[in-house]
Amino acid sequence: MSSLVRGAATYLAAPIVVLVLWQAISMMVASPSVPTSTDAVEGMVDALGNPRFRSSVLSTLRLLGLSFLLAAVIGILAGALAGGSSLARRVLGPVLHLVNATPKIVFFPVFILALGLGDSAKLSFAVFHGVFIAAIVMMEATEGLNPRYRKVISAYRLRPVQATRLIVLPALLPYVVTALRLCLAFTFIGLILAELLTGTGGIGGEILRLMRLAEVERITGIVLLVMVIAVVPVMLLRAVEVRIRSRYAPNP
């Protein structure tokens, strides 16, 4: 019980300190244009009371769900296949790494040009933003699959399907969770970026609208909400990842 309390305390300490610091600093500045943390929370609650804003949030979440699904499935499958075959690895590997290293944001105008200002541009940019990291994680995981497993597979004469089900998938599971975590994070960042750049619809569009109106408290509240949406699921996935990894005792 006390260890539970301690765990919760260490988890909550950092955000509480940040909020307290923020509050202290903004109260010291005491300028109406610098929102305090309580202002921000009020702004968030206030915004969430507005049905129009709620529908914006829902539309962003819907797009996020769809783009994450696409990016994760495509990225994980492509990465695993690329890692599994040495030819694909040699061809796809450098491409993946190159694209992953380029700042994808500069390509957003291309998406608008090709797909217009609607949801499809946002959706495809979010997928584009999140898919590569997932593919790279999976490619490296498959490539680095412990050679011992290959020996096991050949020693027991497992057929490909059996080998995949019994050995490869369980061995890759921790990396799948890592890929999912990074993919979710990058997809969401891509989506918010797309919304901020098109300025229509979704949370990003709402932020831009309020920015023009200089509604500091609301906008801070909404951005706080964005941070929560971004961080909480990723932290949960991270916790799952830590658990799985600790169960799969580290490979020597």
Partner: peptide, 9 residues
């Protein structure tokens, strides 16, 4: 994972 760009506005 934080969408820092959202802070720019």
């Amino acid at each position: 994972a934080i969408p820092v760009f959202a802070l720019y506005p």
